[in-house]
Amino acid sequence: MNCKSDKLKNFQKYLKAQKTAAFVVTDLESVNFLSDFEFLYEGDASLLITPNKAFCFAKQMYLGDLARHTPYLTLIENNTIINIVGKLKDLKIKQAFFDPTKMDYINGNLLHSAGVKEKPAFLLNAREIKTPDEIKKISKACKISSAAYDIFRKKIKTGMTEIQAAKMLEDIMASLGGVGLAFDTIMAFGENGANPHHRNTNRKLKAEEPVLLDYGCKVGGYCSDITRTFWHGKKPTAEFTKVFNMVKTAHDLAIKAARIGISGGALDAVCRDYLEEQTGRTDLFIHSTGHGLGWFIHEMPRIAKGEKGKLQADMTFTIEPGLYYQGRLGIRYENSVHLTKNSLKILTKK
């Protein structure tokens, strides 16, 4: 039973290391992550976590299931800030904290009045370095999604719609052991690739046009993320080949530059400077170079313009440069990677 509470244990270790006596968590996704329980809606439950204990304040309807599935939580009926503040007093905790970027204003105000202090992005930072078990799951999810790409390439046919192709890809991942999607699959045919947040349509695949697919699956709750752009047909246009090579080179440069100690901003600049220099334009690479991934598809570190945070061992993140010519052509190339003490492992590649 206790094996399921790894995420909580790791967080408690972090609390200890950061000399933090107590931390209050109220947002649904963080509560679900730390409790390893699936509450349905915002406001269903909160957690008060100390280095040694974890209290769960939950709506009455959950208490039975919680008692059976989460022996590592001390249960308290009713999820109210008043209850939480009362517990802090009972425990004689001198200083507790909450994340002001995850707490709504009304409740934040109540905690503030009770003397609870702010620690922005605390949980996000706590998750930045992955445990061996987490890396194992992320790696497996990545392996499945890159293997799925090879099968997909053999099965994709002219005339399929984006929706059908996405479904086929998702089924392939499921058949390889992926459990659920990391995010909604992006399957963009032809000019649709120029929109980095394209939503799949019934547009049919024609012979001789590009296909961009950005997707990922989950294993044990952990995400993978991969993007490929390929030419469906025999003769890629000169423009496609040229743009593809620029993007791929930008990716390769970033992979080479990613090492312990480099800042997210400096790594982003490696891609950005190269693409701007090659294209002579600053409006074509319109998103950041990458993002951390783990239990959530977007975690720390950020690989983005001006980001000061430095890369450390056992971070997992994406490298995903792209170029977008509105209404015409978009190319993105993305891998998920694991930075180890000695090297950078590309997880979404054979």
């Binding site: 970027t101 995850k102 707490m103 204003y105 009304i106 934040g108």
Partner: peptide, 11 residues
Amino acid sequence: DSEKEFYSKGK
């Protein structure tokens, strides 16, 4: 929206 806006921004 004081119920749904984050504390840092609401402040």
